[in-house]
Design a protein around this nucleic acid. Structure first.
Lengths: 130, 130
DNA sequence: CAAATGATATATTATATATATAACATTTGT
DNA sequence: ACAAATGTTATATATATAATATATCATTTG
């Protein structure tokens, strides 16, 4: 799993980290059941603090995407279908202001869905660019 | 233009404010060329500080959605088509992590585009909920 | 000329982010 | 039994962001 942190970015490190782990889960680089690097080892590899990694992992745990096993490592998880409603409302809440902004920019509904379609395929394709 | 600030929210006030102004521009409550409340009056109405309103307005100005006229008020703006590329890349950058997260939740491409479609119509419809 | 405007400056408080150590209980491998 | 590695938690420090309180300035409007 490739992770790259930009210390100059205005996006907090723990968010960059959790976002990139999510991308790795989305494109299949990190599959459900597979182990994630330990907090200490990842912090050492990236040259950042343990607590920063811990914060990112806690966020993913809260989203139901990671499961901590008592002193035995951390494993990628796919949240259950019972949580679909919760996940759905979380996604909608995040999407809403972006879609509103797109409307202000004059982007049509079809145009916006085309962008979503492209991003969806691009992420699943496994590109980690931007 | 109706604006409601939640002081308990974890979303910063200036972001709540700019997001709601954007929604009002998206649903037609605030049309291009129309005046926006002055910084002082809006701050007084909402019971928040001048600088917080100023920060929200500056953000919208930076997005090309507001234009300040020297000591003569602030006006809603539709950013020009020449900036489409910039706006597009801005929207994509914001959308990417949310779509990746949706994929982790097991949401299909069609399902996601349906959500976008619903939100698009809901925002244009003018609902200001949650 | 007074009033209102956006812009700017300084200061203070509170919260968020990131780091540095340290310690704890649990699990794993020897 | 023991050492090593794990996730968890606690404390402390430094910096950045968010929000507030005053205040001043040039410009525009009535």
């Amino acid at each position: 799993m490739i992770i790259r942190i930009d210390l100059q970015s205005e996006t907090p490190i723990y968010l960059q980290l959790s976002n990139q782990i999510i991308e790795n889960m989305a494109n299949g680089n990190l599959k459900p059941g597979e182990e994630v690097p330990s907090i200490r080892s990842l912090a050492a590899d990236l040259g950042i603090n343990i607590h920063t990694v811990n914060k990112a992992y806690s966020l993913l745990k809260q989203k139901g995407l990671l499961t901590m096993h008592n002193s035995r490592g951390i494993v990628a998880t796919r949240s259950h279908t019972e949580e679909d409603e919760k996940n759905m409302s979380s996604v909608k809440k995040a999407l809403r202001p972006i879609i509103a902004e797109s409307i202000c920019y004059g982007f049509a509904n079809i145009q916006l869905k085309k962008i979503v379609d492209e991003l969806y395929k691009d992420i699943k394709g496994g590109k980690i660019n931007e």
